[in-house]
Every structure is written in C-alpha cells, then in structure tokens.
C-alpha cells in the first residue's frame, strides 16, 4: 500500500440555493485503500459523490484525480479518466440483459466507431469480442456468471446491486465509488459483498464507499471520513473514528434513523 494520493478534494462546496449540501470538504484518498465516507442522513455524502463523478459542478473548490484537475469535467469524461461509480437507488439499464449492462460499462474502453460498425470492419469485430469477454469476465468476478442472459429488471434486488458493481468495474477504473452497496442486503449477502470489495482492492482498484451499515464500514475500511451537515467532522482509521466524541454526538441524536 503506497502513500500516493489518487483522489483529492480541496475545499469542495456544493450549494443548492441557500442550502450548503457540502461545505468546504477536504479529502484525500490514497491509492489501494478502502476508504469509507459516512455520516448521518442528509450529511451530504451522495452529493459529494455526485460532485466527484461530475453530475454536479461544485460551487467552489477543486477535485484532483491522479494530479489532474477534473472539477469541470462532464460525467462521461470523469469515467474516461478512470472513476467508476454505482448508485444508491439502483440505475440499471432495465430492459437489457446483465451481460449487455456490463458491456455498456466497458463503453469507454471499446474501440469501435460508427463507420466501423457500418462496414463491419475487422477492427470493430475484434473490439466487440474484447468487450464481450471483458463483460463475461466481470460477471464471473462478482459471481454473476450464471445470470448473463437474465434481464436486469428480473434480477433480485441484491444481485442488482452486485451487477452495478460489475458494470462499474467493466470501465477499468482506477477508483470505484460505491454508494451504499449493501443497502437492503441480508447478512450473508453483505458478507459476500465484503469479499468482493476485498477482491476489487486486491486487483489494484481503490475503493471509496458510502455506507450506513456501521459494522460493515468499520470492518472493511482502511480509512474513514465522517461528514455531518455537509462538513467534515472527523477522519482517520476506524478505531479512532469510533471513539471520536464529535462523531458519537453526530450519530447519537440521530440514532433512530440508523
């Protein structure tokens, strides 16, 4: 595990009208780590994700990825740079098969053009096969090898979340951002998920995750950042965060929402 910084947020603020959803957040994510972003409901975690992945343009501040400024890039450009993500409320391509979903994930790495498609060039066919095999491989990787032809809409909930991860991995990212990956999963499913996340990390991909399940987060993460009311209140290794008075205070008042 190196100390190289992969993703760096500097002073990021996101304002919606009068509401500061994210307030001057600084964050550094090291290469090869599993980094968790936690906080009570409405703390601004998903907004922060959306800022990094280019869906929102921050009101002020900067996002640096691999030393490059990606603040002003559009979502598809961010993905091209090597940032992949999943969604809190599942956003699959419902009318398509699991395999096709993952093939779309490989979009930015598939090298074929409309003209190539028109004339069915050899290069285009090769690119298509490469894409197909990549998608197959990713489905195997997350354990959905048997669901290739299943329509995304007819997969059970837990598998949909896993499929989102496979789809994101197919874009060959340097960092994958998982937005509440184990929401709605039972204990054994989230156990499997933890294994998958380790596997992802071991394959050299940095993981940033937003999660509500405290046990899950504390067990899996190398580093934890806590947001509350849009601002960063604590950062450190799980053990440190667990005992931080500010964190305890932020959570205690909201315990019923956990």
């Amino acid at each position: 595990m190196g100390n190289e910084i992969l993703l760096k947020a500097e002073n990021v603020t996101m304002r919606f009208g009068g509401l500061k959803a994210v307030d001057q957040v600084d964050m550094e994510i090291k290469k090869g780590e599993i980094h968790a972003l936690i906080g009570p409901n409405g703390a601004g975690k998903t907004t922060f994700f959306n800022v990094i992945s280019g869906i929102y343009m921050p009101t002020s501040g900067q996002v640096l990825f691999d030393g490059q400024d990606i603040t002003k890039l559009k979502p598809h450009q961010v993905t091209q740079k090597g940032i992949a993500r999943t969604f809190q409320n599942i956003q699959l391509f419902e009318s398509m098969s699991a395999l096709e979903n993952v093939m779309i994930g490989h979009h930015t790495r598939t090298d074929s053009t409309v003209l190539g498609t028109m004339f069915h060039t050899k290069k285009m066919k090769e690119a298509e096969w490469k894409c197909y095999h990549k998608a197959e491989e990713m489905l195997e990787f997350v354990g959905l090898g048997d669901e290739k032809e299943t329509l995304a809409s007819s997969l059970p909930y837990g598998k949909k979340r896993i499929l989102e991860i496979a789809r994101a991995l197919a874009s060959e990212p340097k960092i994958i951002m998982l937005d509440e990956p184990c929401a709605g999963m039972n204990a054994s499913e989230s156990n499997d998920l933890a294994q998958t996340i380790y596997k992802i990390r071991d394959s050299g991909i940095t993981v940033l995750l937003v999660e509500h399940d405290m046990k899950f987060v504390m067990g899996i993460s190398d580093m934890v950042t806590v947001l509350d009311h849009g601002g960063k209140i604590c950062e450190g290794v799980p053990d440190k965060v667990k005992h931080d008075p500010q964190v305890i205070e932020a959570y205690l008042g909201k315990e019923d929402e956990e």
Binding site: I55, P75, H76, A84, Q91, L92, F93, A168
Partner: peptide, 12 residues
C-alpha cells in the same frame, strides 16, 4: 433506460 447511469458509464 437510465441517462444518468449512462453518463456515469462514460457515455456522452
């Protein structure tokens, strides 16, 4: 199907 997810997959 899902324009936002499409963008997040790198589709312009």
């Amino acid at each position: 199907n899902a324009p936002i997810a499409a963008a997040a997959m790198g589709i312009n």
